[in-house]
Simulated assay, not measured.
Amino acid sequence: MKYRRLGKTNLNVSEISLGTWQVGGTWGSGFNDAAAEKIINTAIDQGINFIDTADVYEAGLSEAAVGRVVRSRKEEVYVATKCGRQINPHTNENYQPKVLRKYVEDSLKNTGLECLDLIQLHCPPTEVFYRPEIFELFDRLKDEGKIKNLGISVEKIEEALKGIEYENVTTVQIIFNMFRQRPKELFFEQAAKRDIGVIVRVPLASGLLTGKFSAASTFDADDHRNFNRDGSHFDKGETFSGIPYEIGLEAVEELKALFPDHTNLAPIALRWILDHPEVGCVIPGASKMEHLLSNITASDLAPLIKEEHKKVDVIYDQLIRKHVHHSW
């Protein structure tokens, strides 16, 4: 495993880290504590030292599992969680400092940790990024020893650019992959100037970029890849990166032709992300052990050559760009 400095947090984190949205069970299939703990422990065994969770993942069960494992280990493992998505209705008006404070304190109780290495606003409405009082709260929480760093998780480039104007914002978690390339333009440039740690989520486009899906693939009724393709439950861009499923399959076939020696495209897709030096770490999820072990191999792959990057860009420009580039 290789490590990178995560911006002005100064944390030295594994470039392949772990996201825990579906740890311990695939999306919609329930949560299995034993499976979750096994995956998290194996991740740490393999050199992963940064784990991302959220209070809404399985109603706090994910946070609790992460906390149990991290507390049981001797290694220094950084825990990042998120707050705000419990707000219902999820509106700008309902984002209030006292509400967010309670969520942070609840996450401390849930994880059993004395201090959170990173707390992130969890994809709040765009208007929230224009309210300084929301961001000032986290300075007080830091002074109280409850958090070490503040980050933001965003849907849109606009939100990322506005969020990093606040001095206490240290990281941005954003969707970036072969099918969502806009962040590498202005945002990456500005993030580097402000020493912002970039955390990449949805790196495999909800599994599309593994190359294992087909037109005949089916998803459980409670799986967001089934019920949220049109964005009816949360931001459409979180599901298959916002592109129509059939278009994604067509683009994946082009990628398979470009990388014929890789029956599993996931390590290549992750390597493509790591080839961008502005990225601090990537947080693919893992519902099975083989997913975790496959993802970790990306850190050992050689960077893609320039010609391969150019051909990935051509696939994006021809098939994907019009569906996503100007929406997020």
Results as ranks from 00 to 15, higher is better:
98 K>D: 15
141 L>Q: 05
263 T>A: 15
306 K>D: 13
268 I>G: 07
38 K>T: 12
191 A>K: 04
6 L>G: 05
223 D>I: 08
276 H>F: 15
287 S>C: 10
264 N>V: 05
131 R>G: 00
189 E>V: 13
313 D>E: 15
283 I>D: 03
250 E>A: 06
1 M>D: 04
204 L>A: 05
223 D>T: 13
317 D>T: 14
95 Y>C: 02
62 S>M: 02
185 E>Q: 10
154 V>P: 03
323 H>C: 12
279 V>D: 04
266 A>C: 05
104 V>L: 13
181 Q>H: 04
194 R>E: 09
64 A>Q: 15
276 H>N: 15
182 R>I: 13
147 I>N: 09
54 A>H: 00
231 G>L: 03
67 G>W: 06
143 D>A: 13
62 S>I: 08
275 D>W: 11
64 A>K: 15
127 E>H: 03
304 L>C: 10
300 D>H: 12
301 L>T: 10
302 A>E: 14
78 Y>V: 01
216 A>W: 04
243 I>N: 00
127 E>L: 03
225 R>H: 07
39 I>K: 05
58 E>Q: 15
231 G>A: 02
76 E>A: 08
289 M>S: 13
228 N>I: 06
18 L>R: 00
57 Y>K: 06
101 R>V: 08
50 F>G: 01
171 T>L: 06
320 I>V: 14
3 Y>D: 01
47 G>V: 09
36 A>F: 09
169 V>D: 06
154 V>R: 01
34 A>I: 14
148 K>W: 01
17 S>C: 03
225 R>P: 08
290 E>V: 09
1 M>S: 07
205 A>M: 05
204 L>Y: 10
295 N>D: 12
199 I>K: 08
251 A>L: 10
243 I>T: 03
294 S>M: 00
198 V>D: 03
61 L>Q: 14
118 L>R: 04
82 K>G: 07
91 T>Y: 06
36 A>K: 01
321 R>Y: 10
131 R>A: 01
301 L>K: 07
88 N>R: 09
242 G>M: 04
